[in-house]
Every structure is written in structure tokens, then in C-alpha cells.
Amino acid sequence: MPSRLTKIGCILLVGLASSLALADAVVVVSAQSPVSTLTRSELADIYLGRTNRFHGGQPAMPVDQRENSPAYVAFYRNYLGQTPAQIKMHWSRLIFTGRGQPPRSLADHQAMADFVAGQATAIGYLDDAYVDERLRVVAID
């Protein structure tokens, strides 16, 4: 029981720290995933299609919320420092050269929570109010 409490405490603490700095979106993986921290550049490389693995070698499957939704805009602004138009420009370079496809897109926070919970390789982002015991918030350095 104490360990469970500690875990929740950690999640809350991380969630609080993230929301203070970044407002709106936290990065999550499945509770089954071994990943607990990522650097900002690792996160950017995963979301920009430059790598398909986490630094530990596990496969990474990034998932997006709907393009131009508040969570989408906040995620790319806060973690990658880019606007939706810049992201679109980035993917148009890869799509039109057959060198990659953008992350799969999900309808809302709940769909994101359910999808990431069910996929050990998935990584996503959502409002911290949707974080439940099936998910782990990833600390971004």
C-alpha cells in the first residue's frame, strides 16, 4: 500500500511540475512500458519520425491527438517549440518523398488514454485529468 501511495505521489508531483511549466498536455506511456523519462530531443526525434525506438531500444509508436486540437497545439508548442504549420511542413517533406508517415491521430483525450493503455509501445499526450492507473506520465528533461 505505501508503495502504491508513493507511486501516485510521484505521478502527482511529475504532473504538477509539468503542468506548471507546460500547461495542458502531459506525455504518457502505458504502465507496462519500461520508459519513465525522456529528454526533450528524444521526444522530438520520436514525434518527427527521426527514430522509431526509445533510447533503451524498445520500439516507439507515437500517437497524436486531432490536428489543431488544443492538446495538439499545446504539445507541439511546449515540447517541440513548433507550430502546427511547421509540423505540417515537416511531414509534407517526408510524405511527398515516401520517407515517412505522421503519427496516427486519435479523436480526444479519452481515446488517447485508452489507446496508449492498451499498447506497450505507444507514446501519447493528454490532459493530466485523464491520467489513470493504466498510464505512466513520462518525465521530460
Binding site: K88, M89, S92, R93, F96, T97, R99
Partner: peptide
């Protein structure tokens, strides 16, 4: 295939990019 001669060669015809 497009020859990757320059940095933006591959998508030089995609104005949006």
C-alpha cells in the same frame, strides 16, 4: 528517384514544404 544533390532536392517541387 530524385537525386539528393541538394539539401531540399527531394521536395523542391512541393511548395508547401
Amino acid at each position: 528517384v530524385i537525386l539528393p544533390v541538394f539539401m531540399n532536392s527531394e521536395y523542391r517541387k512541393v511548395g508547401y514544404a
